[in-house]
């Protein structure tokens, strides 16, 4: 516990120290804010121009979450299907690996071709980015059911659905929630990529425009917002994971609650 607190304090110091060092180095070497703005300038820009940035932030969060929700839903369905049936797993796996190894930036032009620039390609890119980790984790979770437990269920004449519902799905939950953390970060990346390539809204687009007009503090302000949003999304899903699947992390913090 004590060492835990010390570790947290050390991490906080590292983060804080990083920004202080950045600030001091920029001041010491008189770096122009067109090259590298100081953190204080970035935060100032962020505050002053927040009203103008807000619609872009909203757009990015909106496309990310929409793509994430759709992607996770599709991912769960596919994951349950291929985790449930050995045949489906063997048949579908090579194709899934193939799809997942396509760099996702490469699909943005295709989405733009069909749906035009704007919200739809961003949502779709976020969606395709987050499907794969969910599929793999859910399928793995289902496939790791202990054979003895399955024997117990079979001697009780449980149907395959009974086994899936009472054993398979709960067992897959920790894997599923672990994948959500990864998936939400990936769909965020997907939607920002799509915005930088083809959109007139969103933080990605804002940063492209700002960099075109050498408004470097604004570019960095966009980056800070992205970092903050990424951390927030990751943190939210970590919390959900810890709460829902505490049994899988037994004996550490949840013991003897």
């Amino acid at each position: 516990m004590n060492s835990n607190v010390r570790r947290k304090i050390a991490s906080a110091f590292l983060i804080f120290g990083f920004f202080v060092l950045w600030e001091l180095l920029c001041l010491a070497f008189h770096v122009s804010d067109v090259v590298l703005p100081r953190p204080s300038q970035v935060i100032y820009t962020l505050i002053v121009r927040f009203p103008a940035m807000w619609p872009h932030i909203f757009q990015t969060v909106y496309t990310t979450l929409l793509g994430f929700v759709l992607g996770v839903s599709i991912g769960v369905v596919i994951g349950v299907f291929i985790g449930w049936s050995k045949l489906a797993y063997d048949v579908a796996y090579p194709m899934l690996v193939g799809f997942s190894s396509i760099p996702k930036v490469a699909v943005v032009p295709i989405f733009v071709l069909y749906f035009g620039a704007g919200t739809v390609p961003a949502v779709l890119t976020a969606l395709v980015m987050c499907i794969f980790p969910v599929v793999v984790n859910v399928a793995t979770g289902l496939a790791t059911t202990e054979p003895e437990l399955e024997d117990v269920m079979k001697t009780l004449r449980a149907s395959r659905f009974d086994i899936l519902w009472n054993v398979g799905l709960p067992r897959a939950m920790p894997y599923f929630f672990a994948s959500l953390k990864v998936a939400v970060t990936l769909s965020f990346v997907g939607s920002v990529i799509a915005e930088t390539v083809a959109s007139n809204r969103g933080i990605g687009n804002l940063m492209m425009i700002a960099s075109a007009s050498f408004d470097v503090p604004l570019v960095y302000a966009g980056l800070f917002v992205l970092a903050g949003l990424g951390i927030a999304l990751y943190a939210i899903f970590s919390l959900v994971e810890a709460r829902v699947t505490g049994w899988a992390h037994r004996k550490t913090e949840f013991a003897m609650g």
Binding site: E146, E148, L149, D151, V152, T155, L156, N166, V167, P170, R171, M173, T245, W247, A248, R250
Partner: peptide, 14 residues
């Protein structure tokens, strides 16, 4: 109606 038990208790942790 069949009951079954193994060396490993195989209870569901959740």
């Amino acid at each position: 109606r069949i009951g079954m038990a193994f060396q490993n208790p195989t209870l569901l942790p959740w």
